[in-house]
């Protein structure tokens, strides 16, 4: 090997080691697809619940007028189950990929990614719960999308950089949905369902297709 080739190989090795030690790169595209499918199933159940309660009227105002405590309860259950299912399936595929790459699932890179995405999500969660306590249901979907988008943009520094674009997508949808109150669930489904699936597929195509 010539000196030049040797230097290039050394630089590539340095770059790779820097990446591997500072970013969590085992995030699987299948995780995105799985989370997206869970979100769509959840949104479908939620939509069916809302429609049958409001008889075709999908705005959440109708629900409050009817004193829909039971409906709200059901929706909270759907949301919780959707989140748990999405989290478990997303973790599973990422776990499988990290095993295949021979990288630890939990290390300093993962913990940095975890904390940096958790903070905006947890704050968003508290904000949304308080909003619902005050009876402000119109902005629940936009708030979900916006806080999640911010979490992704923040976390993108600690994992595959492309997740930033998924974050921008969620933010754009979140902002748009601020002006389309009453259609929150559709925007929510677009963001958490469709965007996740598209992102997951692109990530799989780019990083995992060949191995």
């Amino acid at each position: 090997m010539s000196d030049q080739q040797q230097s290039l190989a050394d630089l590539q090795h340095i770059k790779q080691m820097m990446e591997r030690s500072s970013r969590f790169i085992s995030l699987s595209g299948f995780s995105g697809i799985a989370a997206g499918i869970c979100a769509l199933i959840g949104a479908w159940f939620a939509n069916r619940k809302i429609s049958c309660w409001t008889k075709g009227d999908c705005t959440l105002d109708g629900l409050i007028d009817q004193g829909g405590v039971q409906l709200l309860n059901d929706l909270m259950w759907i949301a919780t189950l959707t989140f748990v299912a999405a989290f478990i399936s997303a973790t599973l595929f990422t776990y499988l990929r990290s095993k295949k790459n021979g990288l630890p699932l939990w290390g300093s890179a993962t913990s940095r990614l975890f904390w940096n995405t958790l903070i905006p999500i947890a704050i968003g969660g508290i904000f949304i719960i308080r909003m619902m306590q005050l009876g402000q249901f119109e902005l629940v979907a936009p708030a979900c999308l916006i806080f999640y988008g911010l979490a992704l943009v923040n976390g993108s520094k600690y994992t595959l950089g492309e997740i930033r674009y998924l974050g921008y997508g969620q933010l754009a949808l979140g902002i748009m949905s601020l002006w389309f109150t009453g259609y929150g669930l559709y925007f929510w489904g677009m963001g958490f369902g469709i965007l996740h699936i598209i992102y997951g597929f692109l990530m799989w195509y780019k990083h995992e297709r060949n191995n």
Binding site: H13, I14, M17, S21, S22, G102, L103, P104, S108
Partner: peptide
């Protein structure tokens, strides 16, 4: 040694086991 240095340059500190897993 190049690998160890690369990891330490982008992290405030790295422990023994993490280095071991990283470098295999």
């Amino acid at each position: 040694r190049l690998g160890i240095m690369s990891a330490l340059m982008v992290n405030a500190s790295v422990n023994f086991n993490e280095l071991k897993e990283l470098l295999d």
